[in-house]
């Protein structure tokens, strides 16, 4: 009897230890810190929800929130489109299939900072390949990262490049569960290629699609590496994500406010998760 109780405890103890000490405590600690004025150089004091009140009137915070949500929505949308294309290609029977899968994994497998560095160089104003190619085509150089729209688009492109493989592989697992005979039957019944895709495949893989969207959205909402390297949050703060904005405060020593921003970011990620799960259930 006692063995029955002891064993599972022992087995999951290390897991619980790490999760509690290095995930749960930090999360709760962050919330606790957000209730303090905790700034380097001055005494720490409890200010309850004042940091959150300050958020309400902080224009840069709202700008960062808007950017973060927009970035997540736009980049996840394109990742789903390109991810689906890639998945369909990888699913097709071809001699290259194995190699193609490996190659498609590359952008995802390499460190995101390296991917960001590659794109930073591509976008460079004076000798980036994007402007050199435009120049060859007779169009003047574009300062890709110089306008809010340009910088936003540039970041989305880089993010889509990096994460499409991840989406593709998840969707591929879904496509492989679609029975071939069902598609063949539909073809016999006169459904064309596109009808078979939209009417049979998509509904069948909807649960997996939702999982992919969920994973990617939560991931895109915390975007940091890419922005840190490519735009540094500029121009004029136009591409500062919430993670980046929070980091700035940690860096300059305002831990309380940085923590409040982090808490809001978590809530946004959580709301998105709830939303997608809800949508998935309603349709299914």
């Amino acid at each position: 009897m006692s063995r029955k109780i002891k064993e599972p405890v022992l087995f999951i103890l290390p897991l619980i230890f790490f999760i509690v000490v290095f995930l749960l405590f930090p999360v709760l600690g962050t919330f606790w810190n957000s209730l303090w004025q905790d700034v380097s150089f001055i005494a720490r004091r409890f200010i309850a929800f004042s940091n959150y009140v300050r958020l309400l009137t902080d224009g840069r915070f709202w700008q960062a929130t808007l950017f973060t949500v927009m970035f997540a929505l736009v980049s996840v949308f394109f990742e789903m489109v390109f991810g689906m294309i890639t998945a369909l290609v990888l699913n097709a029977h071809s001699r290259l299939r194995g190699a193609l899968r490996g190659i498609a994994l590359i952008p995802w497998a390499i460190p995101s900072v390296i991917g960001a560095r590659i794109w930073q160089l591509i976008y460079r104003y004076d000798y980036g390949i994007a402007n050199i190619l435009l120049g060859k085509a007779g169009v003047g150089p574009v300062n890709w990262l110089g306008s809010p729209v340009g910088a936003f688009t540039s970041l989305v492109v880089a993010d889509v490049w990096r994460t499409t493989p991840f989406v593709a592989i998840i969707l591929l697992a879904g496509l492989q569960t679609v029975p071939d005979d069902m598609l063949q039957q539909a073809q016999i019944d006169g459904a064309n290629l596109f009808q078979r895709f939209f009417k049979i495949m998509i509904p069948l893989i909807r649960p997996i699609l939702i999982v992919a969207i969920l994973f990617r959205t939560i991931d895109a909402i915390r975007v940091f590496d890419l922005i840190y390297v490519i735009t540094g949050g500029g121009p004029g703060g136009a591409t500062t994500s919430l993670s980046m904005y929070g980091y700035k405060f940690f860096l300059t020593g305002d831990f309380g406010y940085g923590s409040a921003i982090s808490v809001i970011l978590f809530i946004i990620a959580f709301l998105f998760a709830l939303l997608f799960v809800r949508i998935g259930r309603l349709r299914a």
Partner: peptide, 11 residues
């Protein structure tokens, strides 16, 4: 699901 920024300050 926690964004990393949520724990890095505390860590």
């Amino acid at each position: 699901m926690f964004p990393q920024i949520c724990i890095v300050g505390y860590l």
